[in-house]
Design a protein around this nucleic acid. Structure first.
Lengths: 166, 166
DNA sequence: AGCTATTCCGACGCTTTGGGTAGGATTAGG
DNA sequence: CCTAATCCTACCCAAAGCGTCGGAATAGCT
């Protein structure tokens, strides 16, 4: 079980925006370059954040994006939910819908099925809890000061060998 | 983010075995039928559980599987780990390997990258915590008494409309 | 011995979806 | 009106999920 790159890139994008909460918008191009992410793909990702009212945009030349709220008011459950479109540990597990149905397998045949429901419920709770208690501000602090257009490398962490191409 | 059917089917299988902790082994065929799961696929799934020493098998006629330990000693983190082959919330996030490398994206280019690491670490902790604190016995109790070969329907729960074919 | 029920094992195939591109339309500053 | 940016929709490729198939090995039964 794994989140997709939408969550990864989207959170990175938010962190980048959080680093310069100045009022002036940041262009996706700048973020794409400093983070080394594909611009076209970022466009689609940021659209999700905008729809969820986590970021605001200014169009035209010198336009870009900024946080719609201060970083410490943005909790990551909101962000990841917007990016991934739902937090369910199992396809057979979706929060109640309008029509009240819940996806699951063959319960009609006997009440079987979701003995596992208890488990997935707890897992979902664990994930949502971890996300909700983390604010964007924490991630910004953790990441260190601004990176976009200011290249002062390596204040923090610096460990973590990466990018396994194997 | 979502677990695969391996986790779902595998846990269901364990629950089914837990329901009759009598010493006599249960055949996959029986489980496949009562749970409505594809036998051939279950075979491959149970192999994962066996390799992790969660179940034992007896070959030949009247063979089958049984739990390798009492249900209350089987914690679900072990099971899900065996079934899914690792619990990472992000592809860029794998526990240390022998060679000490950690998968992640472009950290070489500057320490950037894992501002998000803090977040995924917490999420992983939430998931593992939820899994570890749940024992197979709990799920067995939650599911109600035996179902394989004894058809006393509906002692418990009984809610949960299911199987959305949409 | 042979039959049958079962676990074991490896190769293969279908379908979905993640991850990304391409190309253009719209908006706004200079 | 040119350029820099957001916006939007359609498309494509590779990987992974979710199985199937066929057969081998093992063990009880008659």
């Amino acid at each position: 079980m794994i989140f997709t790159t939408k969550a990864e890139y989207g959170v990175r994008l938010l962190v980048e925006l959080g680093r310069q909460d100045s009022g002036t918008p940041v262009s996706l191009k700048a973020i794409a370059e400093t983070e080394g992410l594909p611009l076209a793909y970022l466009e689609r990702i940021v659209a999700l954040l905008k729809k969820a009212d986590l970021v605001e945009s200014t169009r035209g030349a010198h336009g870009g994006y900024r946080l719609a709220r201060p970083a410490h008011e943005i909790h990551m459950d909101e962000a990841v939910l917007a990016l991934e479109g739902g937090i369910a540990p199992m396809s057979c597990f979706v929060e109640e819908r309008e029509d009240g149905r819940v996806l699951c397998s063959h319960l009609d045949e006997g009440h079987t099925g979701c003995a596992t429901r208890l488990l997935w419920t707890r897992v979902q709770g664990g994930v949502l809890g971890a996300l909700a208690k983390t604010t964007l501000q924490e991630l910004v602090d953790f990441a260190g000061p601004a990176l976009v257009s200011t290249s002062t490398p390596d204040p923090v962490g610096a460990a973590l060998p990466l990018h396994d191409a194997a």
